[in-house]
Amino acid sequence: MLRLWRKIRTVGRVAEPAPLPPATDQPPAAAALAGSVQIRHVDAGSCNGCEVEIGSAFGPVYDGERYGARLVASPRHADALLVTGVVTRNMAEPLRRTFEAVPAPKLVVAVGDCARNCGVFAGAYGVAGAVGDIVPVDLEIAGCPPRPEAIVDGLRKLTGR
């Protein structure tokens, strides 16, 4: 316990200073959320590269939570879906259902190139399409995988902070 305390004292603050707020192309639905966005992450068929990056985005260094974003367990609690990967045939219906389960106003963020336009998996037999083919997408975050900064940047567009 003492070791942990010493560690806390010596390491101090890990979070990097917040960069400037992104350009204000906030999706219209996000305005109603007013600085508080709960996010449900959906892996629609990802290679898990994006997941690693999302993990870092909410880690101490990038600290996505400081902008008012938080990951939650249930789509009922969520305001936004963070969808990664191409949408595989098996995940198309669950994705639709998840979207339906979110109370309005709601947003969908497509994270990574696969989610945006199927990336390298385009045309593969198991792929139902990009996220936009299944549910309406409000925000896209590019990259394969996208850098944590890009993800945080995207989240800040939602929270407006």
Partner: peptide
């Protein structure tokens, strides 16, 4: 958050 080295949401 502060004790974990994070900035916190306020």
């Amino acid at each position: 958050a502060r004790l974990e080295g994070r900035a916190g949401a306020g």
